[in-house]
Structures are given as C-alpha cells and as structure tokens.
Simulated assay, not measured.
Amino acid sequence: MRDRTTIDIPAGLEEEYYQINPEILHSFSKFRPPLNIYRFLEPVGRLAQYYKVGDRLTKEQTLELAELVSQGVIFVSRADHAVYVKHISYQLDLVLLDKHLTESEIADIFQIALTRRMEAFFDQPVRLVFDKVREDALVLTEYVWEDFHRTKALAKRLHGVHTLAAHAVNCALTGLHLFVSGQPATFREGRTARTGLDRLVLGLLLHDLGMTRVPALIRDKTKPLLPDEMQKIRGHTLSGYEMLARLDIKFPEMERCVAEHHERLDGSGYPQKLTVGGISETGLLAGVVDSFCAMITKRIHAEAMEPLVAAKKLLDDGRRYPADLVKRLIAGLAGK
C-alpha cells in the first residue's frame, strides 16, 4: 500500500474538494455512494470523475475505491457540500475523523444534526430519544474540547426563525461559546471540568423542555396572553424540572438551566423570584442566552433583532442581567 503522504497533491485543491478518509467512505452506501466521487490522477495533476451519483459501483470497484481512499487520492466536490453535510449529520462522530472539513463546514453539520435530534426529542421526550441527544452533545463537546476557539464558528451558525428545536440549538451554541470564552487556560486540565461542560451543553439544549407541555396555540399566540395562558407559560420551568426527574436526569447543571433560566438579578423573574447570590452561575448564563437567542430570531409575534442590538439591550437592562456575561457576549459579537 502506498503512503498517502508521498502523493503530491496540488496546493489549493481542497478549496474545491474534500479528501475522503476510510471512515467516511465506510459510512457511505457500499455500491451507491450519495454523491459524485473524483480520483486524483498524478501523471496529469488533476481530478477525474470516478463515480457519478445514480450509478452503481461493481464489487471490484468497491475494493479498488477502498484502496484508493487509503492512498489519499479520492475526493468529493465541495459543490456537494449540502449532501455531504446531511450525510455526516446522521453519524455525527464522523466529524471527529474527517480532518479535511473546515470549521465552518463542521459548524453546519452540528447545527443540522442537533436540530434534528432536538425536534425528535421535543416531539417524544423520552429517555431513549434523550440518549441520542446526549450522544450528539458529547460529540460536540469532544470537538470543542480539542480547541476552544472552534466555538466561534459554531456561535455563527444560529437559526434565524424561532422553533423550540431551533431555539434550543441556538442557546447551546451561543452558551457554549460564551462559557468557554470566560475560562482560564487551565480549565481543560481536569476531568470534572469536561464533565461539567458536557452537562452544561445538555442543560442548554433542554432548558425549555417544559415548553413542550404548553399548547402550541398558546406558545404561538400573537395577541396578548390571558392570565391563565400566562400562568401556563410561566409554569414551563417547573414542568421542565419535573420532566427531568421523570427522565431520571439529576445533574445539577442541567437542573439549573431548566429551573433558573427565567430568574433575574432583581427578583423580577420566575418561578422562585431569586435575586443576586441566589441564582447559580449556570442559571445566569442560561438566562442571558435564552433571552438573547429569543430576540435574534423571527417569531410569530416579533421580528428578529440584530445580534448586537439585542445584546446591548440586555446590557442596558443591568438590573436584571449580569453585566459581565453580557459584555463578554458583546465582545464576541464584535469579534474582539
């Protein structure tokens, strides 16, 4: 077998094509890969089509293709990015294996995969579906754990239209970036830090779990809510907390995201009307990202705000929101 490192691949080729590794190939349909495949021809220094989507590989070709992939001469076009992203999003751990994807492309994959998981979970909030959410969330934290700077690209892949699933993913990606941007360089040295990060991301994904118990007619109402409807909305934090218990999820970080994301520093929040010192750091973080992500998406009753405008609005409301977190959010949006 040839050493793929000895092959002279022209500089800039990967700006237009992905180089496939064996794990990605094995995830494809064996005889009918989902996208066009190209082979690098060394003598002429260019790519030629090896397989056209819709055709069928022979058994001999599948064996040859595996060998060519091991040599590093098989590529797919970045023009097929949407197909490739969708494929990997169903087997999210593949992003940890493919070293040829850009951070922006990987951020696309995470957004799609996590949104699909959350849609399934909110539709059927049972332990079996949660375990799938957990698997994908751990891939996300593993990816970020290798390099915290990766959260910048993730935080730019936010949905523009509000749904429960879209909001959950927006909050997880925004909150993850906001959290790690405030950590010292030594943060990643302990196992407990990694475990806490895992649970924080899961907590942000599930923080609005209780909203699944609020009828859609109330959630999406454009007219002012009646007192009993408002009571149902405000009851979603307690409902979510109870649902965590029924799912046998008892991690403090997740419980605080669910129970405290509507608490405010001046005691004007709910359900417990906690004040400064009574709200956990996790609860404060969840509260900032929940409000911010709600404001930057288009909802039935409100247009989306520009992210910097929304963040500055939170900063102006310093009686209720922690200024240090909001300033860090603004700094991230401004690219500082």
Results as ranks from 00 to 15, higher is better:
R2V: 05
I37T: 04
V76P: 00
K313R: 11
A153T: 07
C293P: 11
Y18S: 05
V180W: 02
A166W: 04
F28V: 03
G190H: 11
T163E: 08
F187M: 01
L325Y: 15
V214Q: 04
Q49P: 12
I296T: 03
A120L: 05
M118R: 11
H262W: 04
K336Y: 04
A294V: 02
T141K: 08
R234F: 12
R194Y: 13
L101I: 07
E229Q: 14
D80S: 14
D208P: 07
A185G: 01
L140G: 08
D108C: 05
L47S: 13
L217C: 10
L204E: 13
E263G: 07
R194S: 02
Y51D: 07
L274Y: 15
M305D: 15
E229M: 11
A120S: 14
S291W: 00
Y143W: 15
E255Y: 12
L284E: 15
M295I: 00
G277K: 06
M243T: 05
L247D: 09
L217H: 14
S268P: 02
Q272R: 06
A82M: 07
N170S: 08
A107M: 08
R199N: 13
Q49N: 09
H261N: 11
H100P: 02
A66P: 12
H159R: 08
Y38N: 10
E105Q: 14
V289G: 09
V161F: 06
T212I: 08
P34D: 00
V288Q: 14
R328C: 04
Y50N: 11
Q124R: 10
H167P: 12
H177K: 08
D123V: 00
H81D: 05
Q231L: 10
